[in-house]
Design a protein around this nucleic acid. Structure first.
Lengths: 209, 209
DNA sequence: GAATTTTTTGACCAATTGGACAATTTTTCT
DNA sequence: AGAAAAATTGTCCAATTGGTCAAAAAATTC
Protein backbone atom coordinates (compact mmCIF):
# COMPACT_ATOMS: atom_id res chain seq x y z
CA UNK A 1 0.00 0.00 0.00
CA UNK A 2 1.36 3.31 -1.04
CA UNK A 3 0.55 6.05 1.40
CA UNK A 4 1.45 8.75 -1.06
CA UNK A 5 -0.93 7.78 -3.88
CA UNK A 6 -4.16 9.38 -2.78
CA UNK A 7 -6.23 7.28 -5.14
CA UNK A 8 -5.48 3.98 -3.47
CA UNK A 9 -6.32 5.06 0.08
CA UNK A 10 -8.49 2.50 1.82
CA UNK A 11 -11.54 3.36 3.93
CA UNK A 12 -9.60 2.92 7.15
CA UNK A 13 -6.77 5.06 5.89
CA UNK A 14 -9.10 7.88 4.93
CA UNK A 15 -10.83 7.75 8.29
CA UNK A 16 -7.70 7.58 10.38
CA UNK A 17 -5.90 10.28 8.46
CA UNK A 18 -8.92 12.49 8.88
CA UNK A 19 -9.04 11.72 12.60
CA UNK A 20 -5.37 12.54 12.95
CA UNK A 21 -5.67 15.77 11.00
CA UNK A 22 -8.60 16.92 13.10
CA UNK A 23 -6.73 16.23 16.34
CA UNK A 24 -3.56 17.76 14.95
CA UNK A 25 -5.41 20.95 14.04
CA UNK A 26 -6.57 21.25 17.64
CA UNK A 27 -3.12 20.73 19.04
CA UNK A 28 -1.14 22.73 16.49
CA UNK A 29 -3.49 25.70 16.68
CA UNK A 30 -3.14 25.80 20.44
CA UNK A 31 0.58 25.12 20.78
CA UNK A 32 2.16 25.86 17.41
CA UNK A 33 4.38 23.50 15.46
CA UNK A 34 7.19 23.35 17.99
CA UNK A 35 5.01 23.39 21.07
CA UNK A 36 2.82 20.57 19.84
CA UNK A 37 3.87 17.01 20.64
CA UNK A 38 2.99 13.69 19.10
CA UNK A 39 1.78 12.56 22.49
CA UNK A 40 -0.72 15.41 22.62
CA UNK A 41 -1.95 14.60 19.13
CA UNK A 42 -2.15 10.93 20.11
CA UNK A 43 -4.32 11.71 23.13
CA UNK A 44 -6.49 14.17 21.20
CA UNK A 45 -7.07 11.65 18.44
CA UNK A 46 -7.53 8.61 20.64
CA UNK A 47 -4.82 6.76 18.72
CA UNK A 48 -1.44 5.54 19.89
CA UNK A 49 1.71 7.34 18.88
CA UNK A 50 3.10 4.53 16.73
CA UNK A 51 -0.27 4.24 15.06
CA UNK A 52 -0.12 7.89 14.08
CA UNK A 53 3.35 7.38 12.71
CA UNK A 54 2.01 4.53 10.64
CA UNK A 55 -0.05 7.06 8.70
CA UNK A 56 2.39 9.94 8.78
CA UNK A 57 6.13 9.60 8.62
CA UNK A 58 6.80 12.48 11.01
CA UNK A 59 5.27 15.28 13.05
CA UNK A 60 6.32 17.77 10.41
CA UNK A 61 4.49 15.72 7.80
CA UNK A 62 1.26 15.99 9.77
CA UNK A 63 1.70 19.72 10.15
CA UNK A 64 2.44 20.11 6.47
CA UNK A 65 -0.58 18.06 5.47
CA UNK A 66 -2.96 19.91 7.79
CA UNK A 67 -1.69 23.30 6.71
CA UNK A 68 -1.63 22.67 2.98
CA UNK A 69 -5.06 21.04 3.16
CA UNK A 70 -6.43 24.29 4.56
CA UNK A 71 -4.55 26.76 2.40
CA UNK A 72 -6.92 26.68 -0.55
CA UNK A 73 -9.97 26.99 1.66
CA UNK A 74 -8.36 29.91 3.41
CA UNK A 75 -7.68 31.90 0.28
CA UNK A 76 -10.94 30.89 -1.42
CA UNK A 77 -13.07 33.93 -0.47
CA UNK A 78 -10.63 36.13 -2.35
CA UNK A 79 -11.52 34.39 -5.60
CA UNK A 80 -15.17 35.25 -5.12
CA UNK A 81 -14.51 38.95 -5.58
CA UNK A 82 -15.90 39.67 -9.01
CA UNK A 83 -14.83 42.68 -11.04
CA UNK A 84 -18.32 42.72 -12.55
CA UNK A 85 -20.08 43.30 -9.27
CA UNK A 86 -20.60 46.47 -7.32
CA UNK A 87 -17.32 47.36 -5.62
CA UNK A 88 -18.83 47.97 -2.21
CA UNK A 89 -21.01 44.88 -2.34
CA UNK A 90 -18.07 42.76 -3.37
CA UNK A 91 -15.74 44.04 -0.67
CA UNK A 92 -18.40 43.98 2.03
CA UNK A 93 -19.16 40.41 1.01
CA UNK A 94 -15.51 39.52 1.24
CA UNK A 95 -15.20 41.05 4.69
CA UNK A 96 -18.28 39.18 5.89
CA UNK A 97 -17.01 35.91 4.48
CA UNK A 98 -13.72 36.40 6.33
CA UNK A 99 -15.49 37.32 9.54
CA UNK A 100 -17.65 34.22 9.25
CA UNK A 101 -14.54 32.12 8.91
CA UNK A 102 -13.14 33.67 12.06
CA UNK A 103 -16.30 32.75 13.88
CA UNK A 104 -16.64 29.25 12.55
CA UNK A 105 -13.02 28.24 12.09
CA UNK A 106 -10.97 29.90 14.83
CA UNK A 107 -8.56 26.99 15.05
CA UNK A 108 -7.70 27.27 11.38
CA UNK A 109 -7.20 31.00 11.79
CA UNK A 110 -4.89 30.49 14.73
CA UNK A 111 -2.96 27.86 12.87
CA UNK A 112 -2.18 30.26 10.04
CA UNK A 113 -1.51 33.09 12.45
CA UNK A 114 1.01 31.04 14.40
CA UNK A 115 2.63 29.81 11.22
CA UNK A 116 3.16 33.31 9.86
CA UNK A 117 4.10 34.76 13.23
CA UNK A 118 6.84 32.22 13.62
CA UNK A 119 8.35 32.91 10.24
CA UNK A 120 6.09 30.92 7.95
CA UNK A 121 8.64 28.07 7.67
CA UNK A 122 6.33 26.03 5.49
CA UNK A 123 4.18 28.57 3.72
CA UNK A 124 6.61 31.34 2.85
CA UNK A 125 6.78 29.97 -0.66
CA UNK A 126 3.01 29.96 -1.09
CA UNK A 127 2.75 33.44 0.36
CA UNK A 128 5.29 34.87 -2.02
CA UNK A 129 3.89 33.19 -5.13
CA UNK A 130 0.31 31.95 -5.07
CA UNK A 131 -1.15 34.33 -2.49
CA UNK A 132 0.74 37.29 -3.87
CA UNK A 133 -0.46 36.54 -7.38
CA UNK A 134 -4.08 36.25 -6.34
CA UNK A 135 -3.87 39.42 -4.29
CA UNK A 136 -2.17 41.30 -7.12
CA UNK A 137 -5.10 40.37 -9.35
CA UNK A 138 -7.67 41.56 -6.85
CA UNK A 139 -5.81 44.79 -6.21
CA UNK A 140 -5.82 45.30 -9.97
CA UNK A 141 -9.59 44.93 -9.88
CA UNK A 142 -9.78 47.58 -7.19
CA UNK A 143 -7.54 49.88 -9.17
CA UNK A 144 -9.79 49.37 -12.19
CA UNK A 145 -12.84 50.27 -10.12
CA UNK A 146 -11.09 53.40 -8.97
CA UNK A 147 -10.19 54.34 -12.51
CA UNK A 148 -13.80 53.80 -13.56
CA UNK A 149 -14.85 56.12 -10.72
CA UNK A 150 -16.89 53.34 -9.16
CA UNK A 151 -14.75 53.58 -6.05
CA UNK A 152 -12.93 56.37 -4.27
CA UNK A 153 -9.17 56.00 -4.20
CA UNK A 154 -7.88 53.48 -1.69
CA UNK A 155 -4.63 51.56 -1.34
CA UNK A 156 -5.76 48.09 -2.34
CA UNK A 157 -3.01 46.15 -0.62
CA UNK A 158 -3.48 47.88 2.69
CA UNK A 159 -7.23 47.57 2.34
CA UNK A 160 -6.88 43.80 2.18
CA UNK A 161 -4.35 43.76 5.00
CA UNK A 162 -6.76 45.67 7.19
CA UNK A 163 -9.68 43.40 6.33
CA UNK A 164 -7.55 40.38 7.19
CA UNK A 165 -6.33 41.98 10.39
CA UNK A 166 -9.70 43.16 11.63
CA UNK A 167 -11.61 39.97 10.88
CA UNK A 168 -8.98 37.46 11.96
CA UNK A 169 -8.46 39.41 15.16
CA UNK A 170 -11.73 38.02 16.49
CA UNK A 171 -10.47 34.47 16.06
CA UNK A 172 -6.78 34.82 16.84
CA UNK A 173 -7.15 37.03 19.88
CA UNK A 174 -10.54 35.75 21.01
CA UNK A 175 -9.25 35.32 24.53
CA UNK A 176 -8.41 38.98 24.78
CA UNK A 177 -11.66 40.08 23.16
CA UNK A 178 -13.73 37.83 25.39
CA UNK A 179 -11.94 38.87 28.56
CA UNK A 180 -12.89 42.47 27.78
CA UNK A 181 -16.39 41.96 26.46
CA UNK A 182 -18.63 39.71 28.49
CA UNK A 183 -20.89 38.84 25.61
CA UNK A 184 -22.10 35.68 24.00
CA UNK A 185 -20.31 34.66 20.84
CA UNK A 186 -23.45 35.54 18.87
CA UNK A 187 -23.68 39.08 20.22
CA UNK A 188 -19.97 39.62 19.82
CA UNK A 189 -19.87 38.67 16.17
CA UNK A 190 -23.07 40.55 15.43
CA UNK A 191 -21.54 43.70 16.89
CA UNK A 192 -18.30 43.03 15.08
CA UNK A 193 -20.09 42.68 11.77
CA UNK A 194 -22.03 45.85 12.33
CA UNK A 195 -18.88 47.75 13.27
CA UNK A 196 -16.79 46.39 10.43
CA UNK A 197 -19.54 47.05 7.94
CA UNK A 198 -19.63 50.64 9.09
CA UNK A 199 -15.84 51.01 8.90
CA UNK A 200 -15.69 49.52 5.45
CA UNK A 201 -18.63 51.53 4.11
CA UNK A 202 -17.08 54.74 5.36
CA UNK A 203 -13.66 53.80 4.06
CA UNK A 204 -14.90 52.98 0.60
CA UNK A 205 -17.77 55.35 -0.03
CA UNK A 206 -17.42 58.37 -2.15
CA UNK A 207 -17.70 61.29 0.25
CA UNK A 208 -20.52 63.71 -0.02
CA UNK A 209 -19.14 67.00 -1.32
CA UNK B 1 22.25 38.09 47.78
CA UNK B 2 18.54 38.15 47.34
CA UNK B 3 17.54 37.93 43.71
CA UNK B 4 14.02 39.04 44.47
CA UNK B 5 14.78 42.36 46.15
CA UNK B 6 15.29 44.68 43.22
CA UNK B 7 17.00 47.28 45.34
CA UNK B 8 20.00 45.16 46.12
CA UNK B 9 20.81 44.17 42.56
CA UNK B 10 24.49 44.59 41.80
CA UNK B 11 25.88 46.03 38.60
CA UNK B 12 26.65 42.60 37.23
CA UNK B 13 23.22 41.33 38.09
CA UNK B 14 21.54 44.21 36.35
CA UNK B 15 23.66 43.76 33.27
CA UNK B 16 23.29 40.01 33.04
CA UNK B 17 19.58 40.04 33.69
CA UNK B 18 19.20 42.64 31.01
CA UNK B 19 21.30 40.57 28.62
CA UNK B 20 19.21 37.51 29.34
CA UNK B 21 15.95 39.35 28.89
CA UNK B 22 17.05 40.77 25.59
CA UNK B 23 18.08 37.37 24.29
CA UNK B 24 14.94 35.78 25.71
CA UNK B 25 12.77 38.31 23.92
CA UNK B 26 14.39 37.35 20.63
CA UNK B 27 13.92 33.66 21.21
CA UNK B 28 10.46 33.76 22.76
CA UNK B 29 9.07 36.06 20.10
CA UNK B 30 10.32 33.76 17.38
CA UNK B 31 9.45 30.39 18.91
CA UNK B 32 6.87 31.04 21.62
CA UNK B 33 7.11 29.90 25.23
CA UNK B 34 7.04 26.20 24.52
CA UNK B 35 9.12 26.30 21.37
CA UNK B 36 11.88 28.32 22.99
CA UNK B 37 14.66 26.44 24.75
CA UNK B 38 17.15 27.48 27.38
CA UNK B 39 19.91 26.43 25.01
CA UNK B 40 18.66 28.87 22.40
CA UNK B 41 18.49 31.65 24.96
CA UNK B 42 21.96 30.69 26.16
CA UNK B 43 23.40 30.93 22.66
CA UNK B 44 21.56 34.17 21.91
CA UNK B 45 22.81 35.75 25.11
CA UNK B 46 26.35 34.42 24.97
CA UNK B 47 25.97 32.94 28.44
CA UNK B 48 26.00 29.34 29.55
CA UNK B 49 22.82 27.58 30.53
CA UNK B 50 23.69 27.16 34.22
CA UNK B 51 24.71 30.79 34.31
CA UNK B 52 21.28 31.80 33.09
CA UNK B 53 19.70 29.60 35.73
CA UNK B 54 21.80 31.40 38.31
CA UNK B 55 19.84 34.55 37.55
CA UNK B 56 16.47 32.99 36.86
CA UNK B 57 15.10 29.96 38.61
CA UNK B 58 13.41 28.56 35.51
CA UNK B 59 12.54 29.15 31.88
CA UNK B 60 9.02 30.13 32.86
CA UNK B 61 10.46 32.74 35.23
CA UNK B 62 12.36 34.36 32.38
CA UNK B 63 9.28 34.38 30.21
CA UNK B 64 7.23 35.85 33.01
CA UNK B 65 9.78 38.55 33.72
CA UNK B 66 10.15 39.53 30.08
CA UNK B 67 6.42 39.64 29.51
CA UNK B 68 5.49 41.52 32.66
CA UNK B 69 8.33 43.97 32.10
CA UNK B 70 6.77 44.87 28.75
CA UNK B 71 3.13 44.91 29.75
CA UNK B 72 3.07 48.46 31.07
CA UNK B 73 4.95 49.80 28.10
CA UNK B 74 2.54 48.03 25.80
CA UNK B 75 -0.58 49.50 27.33
CA UNK B 76 0.96 52.94 27.91
CA UNK B 77 -0.27 54.70 24.74
CA UNK B 78 -3.81 54.07 25.87
CA UNK B 79 -3.25 56.27 28.90
CA UNK B 80 -2.23 59.17 26.68
CA UNK B 81 -5.71 59.49 25.26
CA UNK B 82 -7.04 62.62 26.89
CA UNK B 83 -10.71 63.36 27.20
CA UNK B 84 -9.87 67.05 26.96
CA UNK B 85 -8.35 66.82 23.52
CA UNK B 86 -10.00 66.74 20.14
CA UNK B 87 -11.45 63.26 19.65
CA UNK B 88 -10.04 62.75 16.19
CA UNK B 89 -6.62 64.09 17.13
CA UNK B 90 -6.50 61.87 20.19
CA UNK B 91 -7.52 58.71 18.37
CA UNK B 92 -5.32 59.42 15.37
CA UNK B 93 -2.45 59.97 17.76
CA UNK B 94 -3.17 56.70 19.47
CA UNK B 95 -3.23 54.82 16.21
CA UNK B 96 0.05 56.38 15.14
CA UNK B 97 1.66 55.54 18.46
CA UNK B 98 0.59 51.93 18.08
CA UNK B 99 1.82 51.79 14.49
CA UNK B 100 5.14 53.20 15.56
CA UNK B 101 5.46 50.48 18.15
CA UNK B 102 4.78 47.87 15.48
CA UNK B 103 7.58 49.33 13.42
CA UNK B 104 10.08 49.73 16.21
CA UNK B 105 9.22 46.83 18.47
CA UNK B 106 8.05 43.94 16.29
CA UNK B 107 9.49 41.35 18.65
CA UNK B 108 7.50 42.68 21.56
CA UNK B 109 4.37 42.70 19.44
CA UNK B 110 4.95 39.11 18.38
CA UNK B 111 5.58 38.08 21.96
CA UNK B 112 2.20 39.39 23.06
CA UNK B 113 0.50 38.01 19.98
CA UNK B 114 1.87 34.54 20.62
CA UNK B 115 0.99 34.73 24.28
CA UNK B 116 -2.63 35.62 23.57
CA UNK B 117 -2.92 33.26 20.63
CA UNK B 118 -1.85 30.35 22.78
CA UNK B 119 -4.37 31.08 25.48
CA UNK B 120 -2.63 33.84 27.44
CA UNK B 121 -1.49 31.42 30.15
CA UNK B 122 0.33 34.17 32.00
CA UNK B 123 -1.53 37.32 31.12
CA UNK B 124 -5.15 36.27 31.20
CA UNK B 125 -5.44 37.82 34.63
CA UNK B 126 -4.02 41.14 33.52
CA UNK B 127 -6.20 41.16 30.43
CA UNK B 128 -9.37 40.59 32.41
CA UNK B 129 -8.57 43.15 35.09
CA UNK B 130 -6.02 45.87 34.37
CA UNK B 131 -6.39 46.07 30.59
CA UNK B 132 -10.15 45.75 30.73
CA UNK B 133 -10.36 48.52 33.30
CA UNK B 134 -8.20 50.89 31.29
CA UNK B 135 -10.11 50.14 28.13
CA UNK B 136 -13.45 50.59 29.87
CA UNK B 137 -12.31 54.04 30.92
CA UNK B 138 -11.25 55.01 27.43
CA UNK B 139 -14.43 53.67 25.90
CA UNK B 140 -16.30 55.81 28.41
CA UNK B 141 -14.36 58.79 27.11
CA UNK B 142 -15.42 57.94 23.59
CA UNK B 143 -19.04 57.58 24.67
CA UNK B 144 -18.81 60.96 26.35
CA UNK B 145 -17.46 62.52 23.14
CA UNK B 146 -20.35 60.96 21.25
CA UNK B 147 -22.85 62.33 23.71
CA UNK B 148 -21.28 65.77 23.41
CA UNK B 149 -21.66 65.47 19.62
CA UNK B 150 -17.93 65.83 19.21
CA UNK B 151 -17.83 62.42 17.57
CA UNK B 152 -20.22 60.44 15.42
CA UNK B 153 -21.49 57.24 17.00
CA UNK B 154 -19.00 54.39 16.98
CA UNK B 155 -18.65 51.19 19.02
CA UNK B 156 -15.69 52.07 21.23
CA UNK B 157 -14.58 48.56 22.05
CA UNK B 158 -14.56 47.43 18.46
CA UNK B 159 -12.86 50.66 17.47
CA UNK B 160 -9.96 49.80 19.75
CA UNK B 161 -9.91 46.19 18.64
CA UNK B 162 -9.64 47.31 15.04
CA UNK B 163 -6.86 49.78 15.81
CA UNK B 164 -4.94 47.06 17.61
CA UNK B 165 -5.58 44.59 14.82
CA UNK B 166 -4.63 46.88 11.97
CA UNK B 167 -1.49 48.31 13.53
CA UNK B 168 -0.12 45.15 15.09
CA UNK B 169 -0.73 43.29 11.84
CA UNK B 170 2.31 45.03 10.36
CA UNK B 171 4.54 43.63 13.11
CA UNK B 172 2.99 40.23 13.74
CA UNK B 173 2.49 39.27 10.12
CA UNK B 174 5.39 41.21 8.68
CA UNK B 175 6.56 38.17 6.79
CA UNK B 176 3.29 37.97 4.92
CA UNK B 177 3.15 41.69 4.30
CA UNK B 178 6.71 41.80 3.05
CA UNK B 179 6.31 38.79 0.81
CA UNK B 180 3.45 40.59 -0.92
CA UNK B 181 4.86 44.11 -1.01
CA UNK B 182 8.43 44.47 -2.17
CA UNK B 183 9.01 47.73 -0.40
CA UNK B 184 11.48 49.08 2.07
CA UNK B 185 10.36 49.17 5.66
CA UNK B 186 10.19 52.95 5.44
CA UNK B 187 7.90 53.02 2.43
CA UNK B 188 5.74 50.28 3.85
CA UNK B 189 5.07 52.02 7.13
CA UNK B 190 4.60 55.37 5.43
CA UNK B 191 1.94 53.85 3.21
CA UNK B 192 0.41 52.05 6.17
CA UNK B 193 0.19 55.27 8.14
CA UNK B 194 -1.38 57.08 5.25
CA UNK B 195 -3.90 54.31 4.72
CA UNK B 196 -4.75 53.89 8.39
CA UNK B 197 -5.10 57.64 8.84
CA UNK B 198 -7.56 57.69 5.98
CA UNK B 199 -9.54 54.73 7.39
CA UNK B 200 -9.71 56.24 10.83
CA UNK B 201 -10.63 59.71 9.61
CA UNK B 202 -13.45 58.31 7.52
CA UNK B 203 -14.61 56.04 10.31
CA UNK B 204 -14.73 58.82 12.88
CA UNK B 205 -15.74 61.90 10.94
CA UNK B 206 -19.21 63.27 11.07
CA UNK B 207 -20.62 62.68 7.63
CA UNK B 208 -21.65 65.52 5.40
CA UNK B 209 -25.44 65.56 5.23
C1' DG C 1 -11.99 -20.56 6.75
C1' DA C 2 -7.28 -20.34 5.66
C1' DA C 3 -3.83 -17.26 3.72
C1' DT C 4 -2.41 -12.74 3.09
C1' DT C 5 -2.29 -8.08 3.81
C1' DT C 6 -3.15 -4.19 6.61
C1' DT C 7 -3.46 -2.16 11.03
C1' DT C 8 -2.29 -1.70 15.84
C1' DT C 9 0.57 -1.74 19.76
C1' DG C 10 4.06 -2.51 23.62
C1' DA C 11 8.64 -2.05 24.31
C1' DC C 12 12.38 0.31 23.22
C1' DC C 13 15.98 3.96 21.74
C1' DA C 14 18.75 8.13 20.96
C1' DA C 15 18.44 13.01 21.26
C1' DT C 16 16.90 16.97 23.50
C1' DT C 17 14.95 19.11 27.24
C1' DG C 18 14.89 21.81 31.84
C1' DG C 19 17.39 21.85 35.62
C1' DA C 20 20.83 20.50 39.84
C1' DC C 21 25.22 20.89 41.92
C1' DA C 22 29.83 20.89 43.38
C1' DA C 23 34.01 22.84 42.07
C1' DT C 24 36.34 26.70 40.16
C1' DT C 25 37.05 31.43 38.94
C1' DT C 26 36.22 36.20 39.48
C1' DT C 27 34.82 40.18 41.97
C1' DT C 28 34.27 42.79 46.09
C1' DC C 29 35.40 44.27 50.56
C1' DT C 30 38.52 45.22 54.28
C1' DA D 1 47.01 41.02 49.76
C1' DG D 2 43.78 37.97 51.71
C1' DA D 3 39.17 36.62 53.07
C1' DA D 4 34.50 36.46 51.82
C1' DA D 5 31.00 36.71 48.58
C1' DA D 6 29.38 36.41 44.03
C1' DA D 7 29.59 34.58 39.52
C1' DT D 8 30.65 30.96 36.26
C1' DT D 9 31.00 26.47 34.40
C1' DG D 10 31.64 21.31 33.48
C1' DT D 11 29.31 17.48 34.51
C1' DC D 12 25.53 15.18 35.44
C1' DC D 13 20.44 13.63 35.70
C1' DA D 14 15.61 12.54 35.06
C1' DA D 15 11.85 13.52 32.06
C1' DT D 16 10.16 14.28 27.63
C1' DT D 17 10.75 14.22 22.94
C1' DG D 18 10.32 12.18 18.00
C1' DG D 19 10.71 8.04 16.16
C1' DT D 20 11.78 2.54 15.39
C1' DC D 21 10.59 -2.20 15.22
C1' DA D 22 9.08 -6.71 15.79
C1' DA D 23 5.19 -9.06 17.16
C1' DA D 24 0.26 -9.33 17.66
C1' DA D 25 -4.37 -8.32 16.13
C1' DA D 26 -7.68 -7.26 12.78
C1' DA D 27 -9.34 -6.86 8.23
C1' DT D 28 -9.38 -8.43 3.56
C1' DT D 29 -9.00 -11.69 -0.09
C1' DC D 30 -9.35 -16.06 -2.04
Amino acid sequence: MNLIEKKTLSRIQKEKRSTIKKAALEVFSEYGLRGATLDKIAIASGLTKPNILYYYSSKDQIYFDVLSGLLDEWVAPLHNISSDGDPIDELLGYMKAKLKMSKQKPQESKLFATEILHGAPLTQNVLATSLKQTLDEKVAVIDKWIEEKKLEYVNGYHLFFSIWAMTQHYADFDIQVKSILNQSEEELFDDAEEYLTSVLLRTLSVRAP
